[in-house]
Nucleic acid binder design. Structure first.
Lengths: 140, 140
DNA sequence: GTGTTTGCAAAGTGTTTGCAATTTA
DNA sequence: TAAATTGCAAACACTTTGCAAACAC
């Protein structure tokens, strides 16, 4: 996902969030570069590198708020950390277990067929496919 | 998965784990009832209910050791908790988001086709399909 | 001006670890 | 009796929260 500065302000307003320096700065870091995956710690490092002054608490709150506003999608791959994806279209993920890194798999290169009916009283909210990959042990 | 008492002792030895009262008791709780999903907190509650004396630290260590010994498979569905599955055969999961509960989807009722090649230098370790379901909002 | 947001530090959750006492092999 | 395991409490990683000061509208 990518927003123009104006679109992004607009998007914040739609979400009922006021336009603050922190949200603009984090939004720029998160959304300026096409589809990507972030977690709080990475974002803190990027903010530091870009000399953006934001507290870690605000980073967490912002990620949560953006996810609640459907500007980010949370991806559960690791019991330890939360990852957020800027790509909101249907697609799946490679998870590099060695590096703790996510990579998109375009929706059309992978098909889930024969999806079972959801158990009684429930409806399908989402289907996540995580292809866990590992670095090949070096060969001769 | 289910083990007879002797099989279970044997399985522990294969894994290089000594046979202790705690591992037997937890093993009984985990593996006595066909395929199931556990997390540490649930197991603690079950142990308490069964008047099994085990510390929470031992529960965590045991779950980790059983997973390392391929007696359990860890399933990542939630950034908060770790879930462990006794079903080691190929299959997938419903995750009941409202209840934080896993349910098996038999392997043959769902097919993933067109699996992409793993990125250069990596190999596929596992493919996890999580079908996230939610309780239907009550209708009129 | 009023309500929202920020940042800090403190608290919270789930998990791991150091170490003395206990148990297993 | 040597090595492994347990339980406790302390430490840990990640995340959330309470509240006063700062900011948006």
């Amino acid at each position: 996902m990518t927003y123009s500065p104006d679109e992004f302000r607009e998007r914040l307003r739609e979400a009922g969030l006021s336009v603050t320096a922190q949200r603009l700065a984090l939004g720029r870091l998160i959304f300026s570069d096409g589809d990507r995956h972030v977690n709080a710690e990475q974002l803190r490092a990027e903010a530091a590198a870009a000399r953006v002054k934001v507290s870690l608490a605000t980073i967490y709150n912002t990620l949560r708020q953006f996810a609640a506003a459907d500007m980010l999608r949370e991806v559960a791959v690791d019991a330890g950390r939360s990852y957020f994806d800027t790509n909101l279209t249907e697609h799946h993920h490679f998870f590099h277990e060695d590096e703790g890194r996510l990579e998109d798999i375009p929706a059309d290169s992978l098909t889930v067929s024969g999806l079972p009916v959801a158990p009684d009283g429930t409806g399908i909210h989402r289907v996540d496919v995580i292809v866990r990959v590992r670095t090949n042990s070096s060969e001769i």
